[in-house]
Design a protein around this nucleic acid. Structure first.
Length: 568
RNA sequence: GGCGGGAUAGCUCAGCUGGUUAGAGCGCAGGACUCAUAAUCCUGAGGUCGAGAGUUCAAGUCUCUCUCCCGCUACCA
């Protein structure tokens, strides 16, 4: 039994996430976690809300709330909506936890002791009206290059020129609109990433199992030369900066930068889990304390790759402590929405809460997995969604379960028939299954989601093909025992189809397995070499046809949703 | 500008280290069946694999050039 640690990129706290966020990290991580649990491995799937940073403060202000209260509320909302999507986190923590503060401070102090952190003085824009320093992008003004009037302090959106806030003509705060700004000196901590480059490069050199995309992004950063990053900010909301365990002089009004403490949140959330459940978190994260045999897998969108392959490892490696580093990494492209992006800030697209108002989570889980944005960016369209759901779930799987269970109830009193001897059709489906189960398992191990879903569907479709070959309804007229073989095999196929569907559509799979009376300890991942798969249900065992599993999506619904969500 | 990813049947996409008639799903057409959510099963129509050149006995599959999309470019997560 292997031990597998799984994390998905931490969803930011400012509101319910959209389907793009779900498809690109949390859902694939969940599918993988479920698959590996079914294989009998010891899995720990950790996620958390990422709560620090200016956007959180602004969102709280916009909601008229204290930032802590806002985060408390949003954390619960995200946790609940994730659970309603059947995300099987072992723990869903928060980066604002005491555990994360402690660990973040620990890393900073260790890095400083190792000579990798220096204090520097920077000049930054201070807004008197807002009584705070402004991050570059919260200062706008006229671009000195092209004259565009709404250039941001980091870059001009019109001409693309990279800017410093002090370059702007007539700058103002985007928070209050105030022009009462001044440049002030401010002390900060800087992480000497440039000193880490050889070690990071060596580490990436050894990470030969990463996807090409991940390695090329990592090398790009390394080749350009790692910049020393300022890891503190002039904010009040975040992890306090300490020295020797106490407040650090001159840093009383500063916190760590969100990108420094967020990935540490993976570890901290595991510590939260340990505290809540009485487990030991260090055996998952410290190679000197039992984590040596852990395989650590990270899931994220492509925008996050550099932080996971370079920035966070710099923190870990720089500590010189035996922390677990990522072993496998799966990155996703974007799920787009009618030509543009899903956008939290401009409310474009479908969000997790409204998705569930339309249809149960399995519908979304299936679509987003079978059309995962793996190779390139992918478009979400209602027409495609409708087609996939109706064909794959309603027609191929749902109808199969319905036809075989109804027929069994009608002709065999709802009991798994015992009579008859397997023949040609059964030999065909058996060989088909062993071949396809082998392929399916390999696709999951390789984290190839589209292929895994396509193979799952192909197995379901083979069930329908089997029934055409076996045609128990024809044989029933002349030879009831021959029909019995077909029904028994068909029922076992239904059970098997539900078992292999569990990683992607756990709720529906559970319904089918419940209706067929398959006990929990008979629901684990099938071995493709197992010869008893088609006779696993006890003969004579009573089954109940489940309710229709999937309702088809009508054209009228699509029209209504397009209207409601603006999908054109 | 730099870096990276795409461009394959009407649509969405597979095609690993180059090698028999380029594949799948959807859609479409015809047929079969009737247990089932008018579901299912079979068959078919054929795309100069973005353009051009090159390497090779042999190229979607390697090299070069070009065109068109898209993403990233570090204090926005």
């Amino acid at each position: 039994m292997a031990r597998i640690l799984i994390t998905s990129a931490l969803p930011y706290i400012n509101g319910i996430k959209h389907l793009g966020n779900l498809a690109g990290s949390m859902l694939p991580a969940d599918v993988y976690a479920r698959f590996q649990r079914m294989r009998g491995h010891e899995v720990l799937y950790i996620c958390a809300t990422d709560e620090h940073g200016t956007p959180a403060e602004l969102a709280a202000a916009a909601a008229g709330q204290d930032v802590r209260a806002y985060c408390d509320e949003q954390h619960v909302l995200q946790k609940e909506i994730g659970e309603r999507f059947a995300l099987s986190w072992d723990y869903f923590g928060r980066t604002s936890s005491p555990e994360n503060a402690k660990l973040t401070q620990h890393f900073a102090e260790v890095l400083e002791a190792n000579g990798l952190i220096a204090e520097i003085v920077e000049k930054q824009i201070y807004s008197k009206a807002d009584t705070r320093f402004l991050p570059d992008r919260y200062v706008e003004g006229t671009c000195p290059n092209c004259g565009f009037e709404k250039a941001r302090g980091d870059q001009c959106d019109n001409c693309g020129k990279l800017l410093e806030p002090t370059d702007l003509i007539e700058p103002y705060s985007t928070i209050s609109g105030s022009r009462d700004l001044e440049v002030r000196d401010t002390r900060h901590l800087q992480l000497k990433q440039s000193q880490m480059e050889p070690r990071l490069r060596q580490w990436v050199d050894e990470a030969t199992s990463w996807p090409q995309l991940a390695r090329s992004i990592a090398y790009k950063w390394l080749d350009e030369g790692l910049r020393d990053r300022t890891i503190t900010r002039d904010l009040s909301w975040g992890v306090k900066v300490t020295k020797d365990g106490g407040p650090r002089e001159g840093f009383e009004d500063k916190v760590f930068y969100v990108w420094f403490d967020a990935p540490i949140g993976y570890i901290a959330a595991t510590a939260e889990w340990a505290k809540a459940t009485g487990n030991d978190w260090e055996r998952w994260w410290r190679t000197d304390k039992g984590a040596g045999d852990v395989s650590y897998v990270q899931f994220m969108g492509k925008d996050n790759v550099a932080f996971h392959t370079v920035s966070f490892p710099a923190t870990i490696l720089g500590s010189e402590e035996p922390w677990k580093l990522v072993d496998r990494l799966k990155a996703f492209n974007w799920l787009n929405w009618y030509g543009g992006k899903f956008s939290t800030s401009s409310k474009r697209g479908v969000f997790m809460d409204s998705a569930l108002e339309l249809l149960p989570s399995d519908y979304w889980r299936w679509y987003l997995t079978s059309n995962a944005p793996e190779g390139s960016d992918t478009q979400f369209t209602w027409e495609s969604f409708q087609g996939v759901i109706n064909s794959d779930l309603a027609n191929v799987l749902g109808n199969f379960v319905n036809r075989i269970t109804k027929y069994c109830a009608a002709k065999f009193e709802g009991q798994v028939p015992a009579a008859g001897t397997p023949g040609e059709a059964e030999a065909w489906i058996a060989s088909e299954l062993s071949e396809r189960l082998k392929a399916l398992t390999a696709h999951y191990e390789a984290m190839e989601y589209r292929k895994a879903a396509a193979e799952t569907r192909a197995i379901w479709a083979a069930g329908n093909e089997y029934l055409t070959k076996a045609e128990p309804w024809v044989k029933y007229k002349s030879d009831v025992d021959a029909a019995a073989v077909g029904v028994r095999t068909g029922l076992n196929l239904a059970a098997l189809f539900a078992i292999i569907a569990q990683p992607i559509i756990p709720d529906t799979a559970g319904k089918v397995l419940g209706a067929l009376g398959v006990p929990d300890d008979r629901r684990s991942w099938p071995d493709w070499q197992d010869k008893t798969l088609l006779d696993a249900l006890p003969q004579g065992h009573a089954i109940t046809p489940p309710e229709v599993l999937f309702a088809k999506i009508e054209d009228a619904s699509v029209e209504e949703w397009k209207e409601r969500f603006g999908g054109e």
